[in-house]
Design a protein around this nucleic acid. Structure first.
Length: 330
DNA sequence: ATATGTGTTGAC
DNA sequence: TCAACACATATG
């Protein structure tokens, strides 16, 4: 048990205090977690062969970790009312780490985790893992976790200095580290985002958090502003008019957006992500990656439903990999 | 037979 | 959203 120690508290309950590694940092008031009493084989317990199993499975103090009948631990995360299974693990802490990785990929760096808040940490290790997560689709991350190859892939990624596993279309590999950036949010574009409406709806949640509109004091209504985004570190510049539409009560990128859609040939289901350089500059970046496109050639599994359900980014099509970012075209 | 992951439910 | 629990289904 590397992440916890057990101490007998009383005959009918056990208090598990997970002490090291920052576990439980976010749980309750930092106290340990009191588990359900474990009525071993019913009071009398005894009549002879008390087997390893007590019907009551021990619950885990880790978020996203559930006990398995065989003593192992399962990891899961929920998204859109559905459970995404992350695999089973021998060690409770491994399951917890699997959850952490998934949480950060699914919910962003601010997600509540069992151990590492990755973000905040400016160590190269953390930064590398963050970009690793951002460079892969949810399905890929889940797949790695279930196959227990996450650690290896991450390592391989750092070693080779390749952000993704494959080389990009231009044949080159990613340049060392351009400038440290953090992803603000990403969105799988909808049909209307790439249609004739010539606008991209920015989910309110992200809009208010990252693109504060209004109140620019200095001048005006603040109902509209120009966003300057850069495509990749040394990519081209993009300017989008960003505003709020009262009629639909939505935040949108208008002028300039259609040009981006056209040039990138964005299709519904593709993903666009917005980043910001870390530090004072606050330069904004935009990136994108295709979802469907090569699925056929990729021979990949039936995509649509890799595991049970979930995975596929929101909109219909099962989004999938392809690190289109870091393109060198143009 | 055992392990793994889903169906379901109820609490928060 | 989340985990407990039952149980169906993969796996070796």
């Amino acid at each position: 048990m590397d992440g916890s120690c057990v101490e007998e508290a009383s005959s009918d309950s056990l208090r598990y205090d997970i002490v090291d590694d920052g576990a439980l940092r976010r749980m309750g008031s930092g106290l340990g977690v009191v588990f359900d009493p474990v009525p071993k084989g019913g009071g009398g317990g005894g009549g002879g062969g008390m087997e390893v199993e007590s019907r009551k499975l021990p619950s885990s103090g880790y978020k996203g970790v559930v006990p398995q009948p065989n003593g192992r631990w399962g990891a899961q995360i929920y998204e859109r009312h559905q459970r995404v299974w992350l695999g089973t693990f021998a060690e409770e802490t491994e399951a917890a780490r699997a959850y952490d990785a998934a949480a950060q990929r699914f919910r962003g760096r601010d997600a509540a985790t069992n151990f590492r808040p990755l973000a905040e940490s400016d160590e190269e290790e953390a930064a590398a893992e963050l970009s690793f997560l951002d460079a892969h689709s949810k399905a890929e991350i889940v797949d790695m976790l279930r196959k227990h190859t996450y650690r290896d892939e991450l390592e391989h990624c750092k070693r080779g200095g390749v952000l993704g596993k494959r080389k990009n279309p231009a044949g080159g590999y990613r340049k060392p580290s351009p400038s440290p950036r953090e992803m603000l949010f990403e969105k799988a574009v909808t049909p209307s985002d790439v249609g004739k409406l010539n606008r991209l709806v920015i989910p309110k949640q992200h809009a208010v958090k990252h693109f504060p509109l209004s109140l620019p004091a200095g001048g005006g209504t603040g109902k509209c502003v120009l966003l300057h985004l850069e495509e990749d570190g040394d990519g081209k510049k993009w300017r989008f008019k960003y505003s709020y539409w009262n009629s639909s009560q939505s935040y949108v990128l208008t002028k300039g957006w259609s040009r981006f859609v056209k040039e990138k040939q964005l299709k519904a289901g593709d993903t666009v992500s917005f980043w910001r350089s870390i530090g004072p500059e606050k330069q904004l970046y935009i990136e994108w990656r295709s979802s469907a496109a090569e699925r056929s050639r990729q021979s990949a599994p039936p995509a649509a439903r890799l595991f049970g359900v979930n995975i596929t980014e929101p909109p219909a099509v099962g989004c999938q990999l392809l690190k289109k970012q870091f393109i060198e075209v143009l």
